[in-house]
Protein backbone atom coordinates (compact mmCIF):
# COMPACT_ATOMS: atom_id res chain seq x y z
CA UNK A 1 0.00 0.00 0.00
CA UNK A 2 2.73 2.41 0.94
CA UNK A 3 4.57 1.53 -2.27
CA UNK A 4 1.53 2.34 -4.34
CA UNK A 5 1.15 5.61 -2.48
CA UNK A 6 4.75 6.55 -3.17
CA UNK A 7 4.45 5.67 -6.84
CA UNK A 8 1.49 7.97 -7.33
CA UNK A 9 3.19 10.79 -5.55
CA UNK A 10 6.33 10.33 -7.58
CA UNK A 11 4.29 10.40 -10.79
CA UNK A 12 2.54 13.59 -9.76
CA UNK A 13 5.82 15.17 -8.77
CA UNK A 14 7.49 14.26 -12.04
CA UNK A 15 4.55 15.71 -13.97
CA UNK A 16 4.96 18.93 -12.04
CA UNK A 17 8.68 18.92 -12.74
CA UNK A 18 7.96 18.39 -16.43
CA UNK A 19 5.56 21.34 -16.47
CA UNK A 20 8.13 23.49 -14.76
CA UNK A 21 10.81 22.29 -17.14
CA UNK A 22 8.64 23.31 -20.07
CA UNK A 23 8.21 26.81 -18.71
CA UNK A 24 11.95 27.04 -18.21
CA UNK A 25 12.49 25.66 -21.67
CA UNK A 26 10.35 28.35 -23.25
CA UNK A 27 12.50 31.04 -21.73
CA UNK A 28 15.80 29.24 -22.22
CA UNK A 29 15.32 28.46 -25.89
CA UNK A 30 14.32 31.99 -26.78
CA UNK A 31 17.00 33.41 -24.53
CA UNK A 32 19.86 31.37 -25.99
CA UNK A 33 18.99 32.33 -29.55
CA UNK A 34 18.73 35.94 -28.44
CA UNK A 35 22.19 35.77 -26.89
CA UNK A 36 23.61 34.40 -30.10
CA UNK A 37 21.98 37.26 -31.95
CA UNK A 38 23.52 39.81 -29.64
CA UNK A 39 26.96 38.29 -30.07
CA UNK A 40 26.78 39.43 -33.70
CA UNK A 41 24.69 42.58 -33.39
CA UNK A 42 25.28 45.12 -30.67
CA UNK A 43 22.57 45.55 -28.08
CA UNK A 44 22.80 49.30 -28.50
CA UNK A 45 22.15 49.13 -32.24
CA UNK A 46 19.19 46.85 -31.68
CA UNK A 47 17.44 48.99 -29.09
CA UNK A 48 18.36 52.42 -30.42
CA UNK A 49 18.90 51.98 -34.14
CA UNK A 50 16.20 53.53 -36.26
CA UNK A 51 16.55 51.49 -39.41
CA UNK A 52 15.02 48.03 -39.66
CA UNK A 53 15.72 46.06 -42.79
CA UNK A 54 16.75 42.54 -41.70
CA UNK A 55 16.30 41.01 -45.16
CA UNK A 56 19.51 42.59 -46.46
CA UNK A 57 21.61 40.84 -43.87
CA UNK A 58 21.21 37.45 -45.50
CA UNK A 59 24.32 37.95 -47.59
CA UNK A 60 27.32 36.84 -45.53
CA UNK A 61 29.48 39.85 -46.39
CA UNK A 62 26.84 42.13 -44.96
CA UNK A 63 25.93 40.23 -41.82
CA UNK A 64 25.13 42.42 -38.88
CA UNK A 65 25.71 45.65 -40.76
CA UNK A 66 25.19 48.50 -38.39
CA UNK A 67 21.73 50.05 -38.44
CA UNK A 68 20.15 47.09 -40.22
CA UNK A 69 18.71 45.72 -37.03
CA UNK A 70 17.59 48.95 -35.41
CA UNK A 71 14.34 47.88 -33.76
CA UNK A 72 13.06 51.34 -32.83
CA UNK A 73 10.55 51.52 -35.72
CA UNK A 74 9.27 48.07 -34.80
CA UNK A 75 8.78 48.93 -31.14
CA UNK A 76 7.31 52.30 -32.05
CA UNK A 77 4.82 50.58 -34.33
CA UNK A 78 3.90 48.12 -31.56
CA UNK A 79 3.46 51.02 -29.20
CA UNK A 80 1.33 52.98 -31.66
CA UNK A 81 -1.03 50.12 -32.46
CA UNK A 82 -1.38 49.22 -28.79
CA UNK A 83 -2.04 52.85 -27.91
CA UNK A 84 -4.84 53.07 -30.46
CA UNK A 85 -6.23 49.77 -29.24
CA UNK A 86 -6.26 51.00 -25.64
CA UNK A 87 -7.82 54.30 -26.71
CA UNK A 88 -10.74 52.16 -27.91
CA UNK A 89 -10.72 49.44 -25.27
CA UNK A 90 -10.16 51.50 -22.12
CA UNK A 91 -13.21 53.80 -22.33
CA UNK A 92 -15.45 51.15 -23.89
CA UNK A 93 -14.46 48.47 -21.42
CA UNK A 94 -14.52 50.70 -18.37
CA UNK A 95 -17.83 52.39 -19.11
CA UNK A 96 -19.44 49.06 -19.99
CA UNK A 97 -18.19 47.60 -16.73
CA UNK A 98 -19.54 50.57 -14.76
CA UNK A 99 -22.88 50.38 -16.50
CA UNK A 100 -23.16 46.64 -15.95
CA UNK A 101 -22.22 46.74 -12.28
CA UNK A 102 -23.99 49.96 -11.24
CA UNK A 103 -26.90 50.71 -13.52
CA UNK A 104 -27.93 47.55 -15.33
CA UNK A 105 -30.88 45.54 -14.07
CA UNK A 106 -29.96 41.99 -13.03
CA UNK A 107 -31.82 40.56 -15.98
CA UNK A 108 -29.97 42.78 -18.44
CA UNK A 109 -26.66 41.88 -16.85
CA UNK A 110 -27.52 38.20 -16.94
CA UNK A 111 -27.65 38.08 -20.72
CA UNK A 112 -25.48 41.07 -21.65
CA UNK A 113 -22.36 39.78 -19.95
CA UNK A 114 -22.16 36.40 -21.70
CA UNK A 115 -23.06 38.01 -25.02
CA UNK A 116 -20.22 40.50 -24.67
CA UNK A 117 -17.89 37.72 -23.61
CA UNK A 118 -18.57 36.03 -26.94
CA UNK A 119 -16.43 38.83 -28.37
CA UNK A 120 -13.57 37.60 -26.21
CA UNK A 121 -13.94 34.04 -27.46
CA UNK A 122 -13.84 34.87 -31.16
CA UNK A 123 -10.50 33.68 -32.60
CA UNK A 124 -8.16 36.52 -33.48
CA UNK A 125 -7.92 35.40 -37.09
CA UNK A 126 -11.60 36.29 -37.46
CA UNK A 127 -10.85 39.81 -36.22
CA UNK A 128 -8.05 39.93 -38.75
CA UNK A 129 -10.48 38.99 -41.50
CA UNK A 130 -12.90 41.65 -40.30
CA UNK A 131 -10.13 44.25 -40.27
CA UNK A 132 -9.05 43.43 -43.81
CA UNK A 133 -12.41 42.89 -45.46
CA UNK A 134 -14.62 45.40 -43.65
CA UNK A 135 -12.79 47.84 -41.41
CA UNK A 136 -10.00 48.86 -43.79
CA UNK A 137 -12.26 49.77 -46.75
CA UNK A 138 -14.69 51.46 -44.37
CA UNK A 139 -12.02 53.62 -42.76
CA UNK A 140 -10.51 54.43 -46.13
CA UNK A 141 -13.84 55.61 -47.50
CA UNK A 142 -14.50 57.57 -44.37
CA UNK A 143 -11.03 59.12 -44.67
CA UNK A 144 -11.72 60.13 -48.24
CA UNK A 145 -14.93 61.89 -47.35
CA UNK A 146 -13.12 64.04 -44.80
CA UNK A 147 -10.10 64.47 -47.03
CA UNK A 148 -7.62 62.13 -45.38
CA UNK A 149 -5.75 59.44 -47.18
CA UNK A 150 -5.61 56.31 -45.06
CA UNK A 151 -3.32 53.50 -46.14
CA UNK A 152 -5.09 50.22 -46.78
CA UNK A 153 -2.89 48.66 -44.12
CA UNK A 154 -2.85 51.27 -41.39
CA UNK A 155 -2.11 51.41 -37.69
CA UNK A 156 -5.58 52.86 -37.24
CA UNK A 157 -7.36 49.84 -38.75
CA UNK A 158 -5.31 47.32 -36.82
CA UNK A 159 -5.52 49.31 -33.59
CA UNK A 160 -9.27 49.84 -33.75
CA UNK A 161 -10.04 46.19 -34.39
CA UNK A 162 -7.56 45.10 -31.74
CA UNK A 163 -9.17 47.54 -29.33
CA UNK A 164 -12.57 45.96 -29.85
CA UNK A 165 -10.96 42.58 -29.34
CA UNK A 166 -9.50 43.67 -25.98
CA UNK A 167 -12.65 45.47 -24.80
CA UNK A 168 -14.45 42.45 -23.29
CA UNK A 169 -11.24 41.50 -21.54
CA UNK A 170 -10.84 44.92 -19.92
CA UNK A 171 -14.56 44.96 -19.19
CA UNK A 172 -14.71 41.68 -17.36
CA UNK A 173 -11.66 42.38 -15.18
CA UNK A 174 -12.89 45.91 -14.37
CA UNK A 175 -16.32 44.58 -13.52
CA UNK A 176 -14.84 42.07 -11.09
CA UNK A 177 -12.77 44.83 -9.53
CA UNK A 178 -15.71 47.23 -9.24
CA UNK A 179 -18.00 44.66 -7.69
CA UNK A 180 -15.27 43.79 -5.20
CA UNK A 181 -15.62 47.28 -3.69
CA UNK A 182 -17.72 46.73 -0.56
CA UNK A 183 -21.37 47.54 -1.05
CA UNK A 184 -21.40 49.44 2.24
CA UNK A 185 -19.22 52.17 0.73
CA UNK A 186 -21.55 52.94 -2.12
CA UNK A 187 -24.54 52.67 0.21
CA UNK A 188 -22.89 55.19 2.52
CA UNK A 189 -22.47 57.58 -0.35
CA UNK A 190 -25.96 57.09 -1.75
CA UNK A 191 -27.52 57.54 1.69
CA UNK A 192 -26.00 61.01 1.90
CA UNK A 193 -27.81 61.90 -1.29
CA UNK A 194 -25.03 61.46 -3.82
CA UNK A 195 -26.12 60.50 -7.31
CA UNK A 196 -24.91 57.19 -8.69
CA UNK A 197 -22.39 58.85 -10.98
CA UNK A 198 -20.98 60.86 -8.06
CA UNK A 199 -20.74 57.66 -6.06
CA UNK A 200 -18.91 55.93 -8.89
CA UNK A 201 -16.55 58.81 -9.58
CA UNK A 202 -15.76 59.83 -6.03
CA UNK A 203 -16.06 56.63 -4.01
CA UNK A 204 -16.02 53.48 -6.13
CA UNK A 205 -13.42 54.38 -8.74
CA UNK A 206 -10.86 55.79 -6.26
CA UNK A 207 -11.30 52.64 -4.19
CA UNK A 208 -11.05 50.38 -7.24
CA UNK A 209 -8.29 52.36 -8.95
CA UNK A 210 -5.44 49.87 -8.44
CA UNK A 211 -7.55 47.06 -9.83
CA UNK A 212 -8.58 49.13 -12.82
CA UNK A 213 -4.99 50.11 -13.51
CA UNK A 214 -4.03 46.46 -13.53
CA UNK A 215 -6.96 45.62 -15.82
CA UNK A 216 -5.62 48.21 -18.25
CA UNK A 217 -2.08 46.85 -17.91
CA UNK A 218 -3.30 43.35 -18.72
CA UNK A 219 -5.12 44.82 -21.72
CA UNK A 220 -1.89 46.44 -22.89
CA UNK A 221 0.00 43.20 -22.50
CA UNK A 222 -2.67 41.50 -24.60
CA UNK A 223 -2.32 44.13 -27.29
CA UNK A 224 1.46 43.99 -27.37
CA UNK A 225 1.44 40.23 -27.85
CA UNK A 226 -1.45 40.04 -30.30
CA UNK A 227 -0.36 38.69 -33.66
CA UNK A 228 -3.01 37.81 -36.20
CA UNK A 229 -4.84 41.13 -36.37
CA UNK A 230 -1.64 43.09 -36.95
CA UNK A 231 -0.20 40.53 -39.36
CA UNK A 232 -3.31 40.82 -41.48
CA UNK A 233 -4.06 44.51 -41.07
CA UNK A 234 -1.03 46.54 -40.02
CA UNK A 235 1.57 45.89 -42.70
CA UNK A 236 5.16 44.79 -43.02
CA UNK A 237 7.12 47.95 -43.78
CA UNK A 238 9.07 49.31 -40.82
CA UNK A 239 8.15 52.98 -41.03
CA UNK A 240 9.46 55.24 -38.33
CA UNK A 241 6.22 57.13 -37.84
CA UNK A 242 3.60 57.93 -35.28
CA UNK A 243 0.99 58.77 -37.88
CA UNK A 244 -1.84 56.32 -37.29
CA UNK A 245 -3.00 56.63 -40.91
CA UNK A 246 0.17 55.09 -42.26
CA UNK A 247 1.27 51.52 -42.38
CA UNK A 248 3.41 50.45 -39.44
CA UNK A 249 4.85 47.15 -38.36
CA UNK A 250 4.93 45.52 -34.96
CA UNK A 251 7.25 43.11 -33.18
CA UNK A 252 4.85 40.21 -33.68
CA UNK A 253 4.50 40.94 -37.40
CA UNK A 254 8.27 41.01 -37.80
CA UNK A 255 8.74 37.74 -35.92
CA UNK A 256 6.19 36.22 -38.24
CA UNK A 257 7.65 37.54 -41.49
CA UNK A 258 11.19 36.66 -40.48
CA UNK A 259 10.40 33.07 -39.59
CA UNK A 260 7.43 31.83 -41.58
CA UNK A 261 8.50 29.66 -44.47
CA UNK A 262 12.15 29.84 -43.57
CA UNK A 263 14.13 26.67 -43.11
CA UNK A 264 17.43 28.24 -42.15
CA UNK A 265 18.02 29.11 -38.54
CA UNK A 266 21.61 30.15 -38.58
CA UNK A 267 21.34 33.66 -39.92
CA UNK A 268 21.10 36.88 -37.99
CA UNK A 269 17.83 37.44 -39.76
CA UNK A 270 16.05 34.57 -38.03
CA UNK A 271 17.81 35.22 -34.74
CA UNK A 272 16.57 38.80 -34.88
CA UNK A 273 13.08 37.32 -34.59
CA UNK A 274 14.11 35.59 -31.39
CA UNK A 275 15.55 38.83 -30.04
CA UNK A 276 12.25 40.54 -30.77
CA UNK A 277 10.39 37.65 -29.20
CA UNK A 278 12.50 37.86 -26.09
CA UNK A 279 11.92 41.62 -25.75
CA UNK A 280 8.21 40.95 -26.17
CA UNK A 281 8.33 38.25 -23.53
CA UNK A 282 10.08 40.53 -21.03
CA UNK A 283 7.66 43.36 -21.74
CA UNK A 284 4.52 41.28 -21.20
CA UNK A 285 6.08 39.57 -18.20
CA UNK A 286 6.74 42.90 -16.48
CA UNK A 287 3.25 44.17 -17.30
CA UNK A 288 1.68 41.03 -15.92
CA UNK A 289 3.73 40.86 -12.77
CA UNK A 290 3.04 44.51 -11.98
CA UNK A 291 -0.66 43.99 -12.64
CA UNK A 292 -0.80 40.88 -10.47
CA UNK A 293 1.03 42.57 -7.60
CA UNK A 294 -1.36 45.53 -7.73
CA UNK A 295 -4.40 43.24 -7.75
CA UNK A 296 -3.05 41.20 -4.86
CA UNK A 297 -2.39 44.30 -2.75
CA UNK A 298 -5.83 45.55 -3.59
CA UNK A 299 -7.54 42.28 -2.63
CA UNK A 300 -5.77 42.27 0.71
CA UNK A 301 -7.12 45.72 1.42
CA UNK A 302 -10.73 44.60 1.29
CA UNK A 303 -10.52 41.03 2.50
Amino acid sequence: MAKYEKLIRATLLSCTMLSVMITVMVVASVFSETMRFFSNVSVFNFFFGTEWSPQTAIRPDQAGGSGTFGAVPVFLGTFLVTLIAMAVAAPLGLFSAIYLSVYASPRFRLWAKPVLEILAGVPSVVYGYFAVITMAPMLREFGETIGLSIASESALTAGTVMGIMITPYVMSISEDVISAVPKSLSMGSLAIGATESETVKKVILPAALPGIVSALLLGVSRGVGETMVVVMAAGMAANLTINPLESVTTATVQIMTLLVGDHEFDSDKTRAAFALGFSLFIMTLILNIVALIIVKKYRERYD
Binding site: V26, V30, G225, T227, T284
Partner: peptide, 10 residues
Amino acid sequence: AVPSIIFGLL
Protein backbone atom coordinates in the same frame (compact mmCIF):
# COMPACT_ATOMS: atom_id res chain seq x y z
CA ALA B 1 -0.04 35.52 -20.03
CA VAL B 2 2.87 34.97 -22.42
CA PRO B 3 1.94 35.98 -25.98
CA SER B 4 1.12 32.90 -28.03
CA ILE B 5 3.68 33.76 -30.67
CA ILE B 6 6.46 33.05 -28.17
CA PHE B 7 5.29 29.45 -28.04
CA GLY B 8 5.72 29.37 -31.79
CA LEU B 9 9.34 30.42 -31.31
CA LEU B 10 9.79 27.60 -28.84
